[in-house]
Nucleic acid binder design. Structure first.
Lengths: 220, 220
DNA sequence: TCACTGATCGACAATGTTGCTGGTCAATTG
DNA sequence: CAATTGACCAGCAACATTGTCGATCAGTGA
């Protein structure tokens, strides 16, 4: 009859990681609603009590999960935070960065959206490393001659990130297999680059809008 | 002592509306997580049993709420569906449409995001009237000479809608009063128009990206 | 007027979740 | 080696939520 469930070997750091990883997967699968301590602990094969030992409350767990996601994302998109300082703005390969971000978003659905939501709602988004880096590099880029003048880096960050994190919702729902999925990823990166280069409206066809833009501009 | 709670006068249609309206408000306040039948019924001052009479299950209620939101949004952005057919593509005022959409998104936070999420995840987004109209008009616009060539209407719809529905998360968290909020709305509409007209990257500074774009293009 | 439909309500069972507590046991440290 | 720490676990209490049922009672139509 035996069969007592084996007691987990004592390794707090690893346990914490296990729990966060489980929370992350659950987040990607069912969204925020699906992240209950019961479900997370079960998926991580950890006792609920143990989970509470590591994270005081559900809120704290979610908060920690978001940070964990942010870090994962940072590495996937910008590489190792340690070696970051050395690179130059001019050297940043916009096109490759977009590729990596789209890739990550597609592989980790849901969590990017949840992360963005939390970060934007927080009193100071730049507390978050990924946001700081993303928005910051966009701002630096905007100040170079490589960029069109008049870019609002904050708004552009929101637009870019919102788009890249929402597209997988559509893509994953409409792609039957891996192949179609990467095709849809390609479609997205193509379009975002095309948009960045050429916009959507033929400038000479819209003198009124152009005028409105320059007027808004004067107000700033 | 008396004080029996008055029984609601019999008016199923109005009751249904009341419930949906409550659900909608709750959605805007607390997101999907906040929409429990208990909370909705309470807010609507309706017995929970009554709510179940109108909506078989929580899922059904949420589904109905999303449709209701879609309809509200449609009217706010495109006007009355009945008088829609008459207008021409060329007559559509892009700039005014953007204004109305941003306005709506700011006034009704959360629900637009949830709506977009549901619609994109559904097997056939064009079942939804708002999506059909938005994406369709973008497609029609793309085929005119007013537009830059090569636009992917579906991707652009996602980018635009994701952006406009996410911006309020940032804006509402960082605006102290009504005035700051409308200023932030203005910032958004300005930037999205600017982006549509001029993009972000100086085309001549990025011959490699331009080449990649034309290559991708050839593959299609 | 009177039966009938169905909108509304109060209560109940089943289930799930949160957070807490007290107990066990492995590792560390003096 | 003994004592202490704290990681881990099982179970409890409080509460929320879902979905269901049977009992009313207001309109409606015969």
């Amino acid at each position: 009859m035996e069969a007592r469930t084996r007691r987990r070997v004592r390794d707090p750091a690893a346990t914490r990681e296990t729990i966060l990883d489980a929370a992350c997967n659950l987040l990607a699968k069912d969204g925020l609603e699906g992240v209950s301590l019961s479900a997370v602990a079960h998926l991580a094969s950890v006792n609920r009590g143990t989970a509470y030992q590591h994270f005081e409350t559900r809120e704290k767990l979610i908060e920690a999960t978001i940070e964990w996601v942010s870090d994962k994302m940072f590495r996937a998109v910008f590489g190792d935070p340690a070696t970051l300082g050395e690179r130059r703005v001019e050297e940043v390969d916009v096109s490759a960065l977009t590729d990596r971000l789209s890739e990550f978003a597609m592989e980790n659905p849901e969590i990017g959206r949840v992360w963005l939501q939390q970060v934007l709602a927080s009193p100071d988004p730049s507390q978050d490393a990924f946001w700081r880096e993303y928005c910051g590099s966009l701002r630096r880029f905007a100040s170079t001659s490589l960029a069109v003048p008049g870019i609002d880096a904050e708004v552009m960050s929101v637009i870019n990130l919102a788009g890249v994190f929402f597209w997988p919702v559509f893509a994953r729902a409409h792609a039957a297999d891996e192949g179609e999925r990467s095709e849809l990823t390609r479609r997205y990166t193509h379009e975002i680059l095309r948009l960045s280069m050429y916009g959507t409206m033929s400038a000479k066809a819209f003198p009124d809008v152009a005028e409105r833009l320059s007027k808004d501009f004067a107000k700033d």
